[in-house]
Deep mutational scan, measured.
Amino acid sequence: HNLTITQGKLFFHYNPKLCLSEIHKMEEVSGTKGRQERNDIALKTNGDQASCENELLKFSYIRTSFDKILLRWEPYWPPDFRDLLGFMLFYKEAPYQNVTEFDGQDACGSNSWTVVDIDPPLRSNDPKSQNHPGWLMRGLKPWTQYAIFVKTLVTFSDERRTYGAKSDIIYVQTDATNPSVPLDPISVSNSSSQIILKWKPPSDPNGNITHYLVFWERQAEDSELFELDYCLKGLKLPSRTWSPPFESEDSQKHNQSEYEDSAGECCSCPKTDSQILKELEESSFRKTFEDYLHNVVFVPRKTSSGTGAEDPRPSRKRRSLGDVGNVTVAVPTVAAFPNTSSTSVPTSPEEHRPFEKVVNKESLVISGLRHFTGYRIELQACNQDTPEERCSVAAYVSARTMPEAKADDIVGPVTHEIFENNVVHLMWQEPKEPNGLIVLYEVSYRRYGDEELHLCVSRKHFALERGCRLRGLSPGNYSVRIRATSLAGNGSWTEPTYFYVTDYLDVPSNIA
């Protein structure tokens, strides 16, 4: 807008934040220059609390790290170098490059900038070799853009010569660093050979998330399962459950009422301010606690030095998902009996873990797994792929695949051998790939016309006998059925096997 004052003059007093240069501009645009008398524009009460600059400061050096910015700028000295009290560095987070010096300023003089007072450097006698002032900004957020400017702080001049310097606002972004852990990993099994893994992005990506790394490792069953005799009275049979499938998407929606109208769909109840505040506090606490764990609990591995020492970490090797089922080394339970199943799973520490690289999504279907087997899954978020990966501390989750139908069934015939004193040795093959492992066998036998009897055969007993022995049988026709019990439950009964026990007292003698 054009402003013209045809008559009258300007009068400025007691404006401590208004620089004289701005008042002189007002004289020019209003056409009143030359009308004012000496005392109409006070030299001592206008701009006496402001830094009124008329020179431009330029930054000469900028260096960044993930949490620091090192700045240096060209030296500046007023005509009387004693008038320079120091520099004021202003900075704040700036997602967009549209910041002005006066953003967030209120009537009390406060604003949204963080201000650092910096002492002037030592003055050199040689004007050509003056030290460049600077400042190291610490405690910054990774991968965050900051708006920065600097200006001088000078003393009051009796001659009211307006001098000083100020830089333009520059924008500097800190470097990326390792992201925080992925949030809320959930693993479920939808079949006997697959596990579905879902997660949420890290709360602090500290860069642009480029991919996720998912490692999985087959877990050995508890050692007590191999040692305890679950045929003993009072000892509860062990059981394991597989990871249940995901709930429906509708039930997972946030901010939804727990109660549904019987007449149909209901609208979600909005969260109160107290609920939102509580969630923010919980989120802040979780982030602080995660940072504490990362800094205190997890110790970084030592990389190899120039002395030739090897990095103890196993090298990563990509495998196809079809090879995942046989990740671990199978060892027989008892070496003397080769027909026992290889369900003991000690994992070799030198073995390469299978892994998958996930790009542009937060889910993965891990296939080719062994049925009813526990897996430990390790999830890392990465925001750099080359020249070397920059990934987060791992988040861990466990899951067990679903049982395989008929995996616990005894394959092959049940054979028998009759000894003296009416002892019958029953023999059968253990299931080759049971659900988890076989903890015991149930032997059901009966003599024709009598009630059915049951015998429990422990895992250890089966390994020693290759089956079991029935003792003290009365003469007669017998039928026997056997079924295995694994961590997933009972298998199917075998087809009945028949044998006849004679009275050993009636056996004919070869003595003449």
Rank of each mutant, 00 (worst) to 15 (best):
L470W: 02
E290S: 10
P387S: 08
A220L: 11
V359I: 11
F372C: 08
P475T: 09
L487A: 05
R319D: 07
S268F: 04
S223H: 12
G234N: 06
G489C: 02
S251W: 02
N339G: 06
K460F: 07
E356F: 08
M402A: 08
V297I: 12
G491H: 02
L426D: 01
K432N: 05
H294K: 05
G207R: 06
N435R: 01
F289G: 04
C231L: 02
L505Y: 15
N435Q: 01
S304V: 12
E442Q: 06
D222I: 07
S262T: 09
P270V: 10
L237T: 09
Q380H: 13
V358W: 13
R400M: 07
G207M: 15
F285N: 04
F462M: 12
Y498C: 08
P338Y: 09
R481I: 06
A309G: 12
Y259N: 09
G412E: 06
R316M: 14
A381S: 10
V329H: 13
S315L: 09
N208P: 10
N208R: 06
S283L: 05
G412T: 05
V480P: 01
H371Y: 12
Y396R: 08
Q252H: 07
F215K: 13
T347S: 12
L379W: 03
K271R: 13
V359K: 11
H461T: 08
I418E: 08
K432T: 12
T272H: 12
R376W: 06
T272G: 07
W428L: 00
S479A: 05
T347K: 07
E227F: 13
S348T: 06
S283R: 09
R218Y: 12
H425G: 07
D408W: 01
G234K: 08
N360I: 12
D273I: 14
K460P: 09
I377E: 00
C382F: 00
S509N: 12
H211Q: 09
F355W: 08
E258L: 12
D385W: 06
G374T: 12
E389L: 11
Y478L: 00
V443I: 10
P354N: 07
G476R: 00
P270A: 06
Q380R: 03
P245Y: 12
G234Y: 07
S492K: 02
V480S: 02
Y292T: 07
A488S: 06
L321T: 12
V457P: 00
T333Q: 15
L473K: 01
H461V: 11
K460R: 07
N360K: 10
C267Y: 09
D291L: 08
C269H: 09
F462W: 13
G368C: 04
R466V: 05
N435D: 01
N477Y: 08
C456Q: 02
S398N: 07
E350L: 11
E465M: 07
S486W: 00
V327S: 11
D204P: 03
P314F: 08
Q429R: 04
L225A: 06
S367T: 07
D222Y: 12
S320I: 10
S341D: 05
N477Q: 04
S341H: 10
L505S: 09
D385A: 10
L487M: 08
Y500M: 05
V439A: 11
E356T: 12
I482E: 00
E378W: 09
N339Y: 11
S257M: 05
S248L: 11
I276V: 06
T241Q: 11
N339H: 09
V501Y: 07
S474I: 11
H425P: 01
Q380D: 12
G306A: 09
K406V: 14
T307E: 14
P387Q: 11
V214P: 00
E265T: 13
E389S: 10
A463E: 07
H254S: 15
V393E: 15
T241N: 08
D229C: 07
S248V: 13
K357L: 09
F499S: 00
N490T: 14
N255T: 10
Y292N: 06
R471G: 10
C468R: 02
D506T: 15
W216I: 11
R390A: 05
Q219K: 09
P238C: 11
S274T: 11
N383A: 09
E433C: 08
V327K: 15
V296G: 12
L505G: 13
S342N: 08
L437F: 03
S243I: 09
D291F: 08
S320G: 15
V334N: 08
G449C: 06
A484V: 04
Y259W: 06
A394F: 09
Y500N: 12
T288F: 03
F285P: 10
C468H: 09
P338G: 11
E281V: 07
